[in-house]
Design a protein around this nucleic acid. Structure first.
Length: 425
RNA sequence: GGAGAGGUGGCAGAGCGGUCGAAUGCGGUGGUCUUGAAAACCAUUGACCUUUGCGGGUCCGGGGGUUCGAAUCCCUCCCUCUCCGCCA
């Protein structure tokens, strides 16, 4: 959620930012917002002076009665009843105005960083880096869903039997390879200074609001109605919410956390080749890194996080590219996002395996996550997170890119200590 | 699932319907003392909103009510803890 002060102080910027995001009627919406804010502050001023008088008068009544001045006490009482109705009326108005204000404010996406290219959709994203690994086959490469079935390491049918489409069952070496990836990712994150967290996989509404899934985006999450809990769509939600309503000391920064969790997404409306095999699932595994940063350092941190993820991809020997997302493709809560995509030689397409974002104060404003600066003032921190990494597409890429002419699949060197085997098949 | 207890400042823990943003202790910070440290002593120590500033206001789990006035009384919702039952 944008800070109202920021909208007030940098109005032009905000309007431009919203327009770059293709928000309809950005400038008139902002105008409405500022108008409401104005009304709000006027009412507060009035309300507070009435309350002041009310407090003082009420207090004097006690004294007057004590002194036996009944008449004066009665006069004061009648004054308070006038004040009381004024106050109630103003409170009601304030409540309405604040609700309207809040509704507009939560509907606004984050404003992009100036370095983010203006664009409409994924076609306008910019390739920021590409490594020089190339995968070529002198035989007919087959996609991972066929490889998985052939080696009996993933069963789509059994997943359907147990639950439904998008819930695959990993078997034998398939399961082991997943576990190896998770362990390796966590170990590497730990080496990079991220403290490992095992959070709950369900969160309450407050948590959903804190990271920006609620309101409005609840359709993307599985909802446990009996308890009003939500299955987490990413570890970002519980791990970032660890710091909800927190004031950190500057010495405690930066805060670095990581965690492995399954992620649950309804993915309503997805279909076609995008959802084939492991490309899009309702439940998948992911290791997430979360960073709470001093506002002056967050863009430095964003690059560090990207470097960490690129390091993983390099060690896995996968062809990848780093994309800077344009304004139209950046997520609702993010100010700047890099996606990492791995090339799948068998599918002949790029697969998104990581998304690394700086949310600046968009989440921390909702979370009330602040720190005390040198002058002892509280200020909002910046929050960032990134997948390091999401499992299914990495698994898909490994299977496809590492397939051999004899049909077997080589396990990347770095994973072998974790898998205990060198190849599948 | 059954029964009970409770939700107050960073923590612990008082609080008569009015002078309570709230005693006290611990912790934190600054100081005195000390070669230094500890101890002791003194002082200080919440967040938010509004205001250029002075100041003012709000907040004792959330919401509502009674009252001139509510942390204190009433209603309601939420949450936590303890015991019993069931159970990995």
């Amino acid at each position: 959620m944008l800070e109202i002060q920021a909208v007030r102080n940098h109005t032009e910027n905000v309007i431009k930012g919203l327009e770059a995001r293709h928000i309809k009627d950005a400038s008139s919406q902002v105008e409405t917002l500022l108008d409401l804010d104005d009304q709000r502050r006027k009412i507060i001023t009035n309300l507070e002076s009435n309350r002041q008088e009310m407090n003082q008068t009420s207090r004097s009544i006690g004294k007057l009665i004590g002194q036996g001045k009944q008449e004066e006490a009665e006069a004061a009482k009648s004054r308070t009843s006038t004040l009381k109705s004024d106050i109630q009326e103003e409170e009601q108005m304030l409540k309405t105005i604040e609700e309207n204000l809040f509704n507009i404010l939560v509907s606004f996406p984050n404003i992009n960083h100036p370095s983010v290219p203006v664009g409409k959709d994924e076609k306008d994203n910019v390739v920021a880096f590409r490594n020089d690994i190339e995968v070529k086959f002198d035989f007919e490469a087959i996609p991972h869903w066929e490889l998985a079935t052939k080696h009996d390491i993933i069963s789509w049918e059994l997943g359907v039997k147990l639950t439904g489409a998008g819930f695959p069952v990993y078997i034998g070496k398939g399961a082991r390879l997943q576990r190896a990836l998770i362990a390796w990712f966590l170990d590497r994150a730990g080496e990079a200074g991220y403290v490992e967290i095992q959070p709950p996989l369900m969160v309450n509404e407050d948590s959903g609001f804190g990271t920006g899934q609620l309101p409005d985006k609840e359709g993307q999450m599985y909802h446990i109605t009996a308890e009003n809990f939500f299955l987490i769509p990413t570890a970002e939600v519980p791990i970032t919410n660890l710091f909800r309503d927190t004031i950190l000391n500057e010495e405690e920064l930066p805060v670095k956390r990581c965690g492995y969790t399954p992620c649950f997404r309804r993915e309503a409306g997805s279909y076609g080749k995008d959802v084939k095999g492991l490309n899009r699932l309702h439940q998948f595994d992911k290791v997430e890194i979360v960073h709470i940063s001093h506002p002056d350092k967050s863009y430095e941190v964003l690059e560090q996080m990207c470097d960490h993820v690129m390091g993983l991809l390099t060690e896995l020997g996968l062809p990848f590219r780093k994309l800077l997302l344009c304004t139209g493709d950046t997520g609702f809560t993010s100010a700047k996002t890099f996606d990492m995509e791995v090339y799948s030689a068998a599918q002949e397409r790029w697969l998104e395996v990581s998304s690394i974002s700086n949310f600046e104060t968009f989440q921390t404003n909702r979370l009330k996550l602040r720190f005390r600066d040198e002058s002892k003032k509280t200020r909002l921190l910046h929050s960032l997170n990134g997948s390091a990494l999401a499992l299914p597409r990495i698994l898909a890429a490994i299977l496809e890119n590492n397939q051999q002419a004899d049909g077997s699949i080589l396990v990347p060197e770095v994973l072998r200590p974790y898998t205990g085997f060198d190849k599948i098949g």
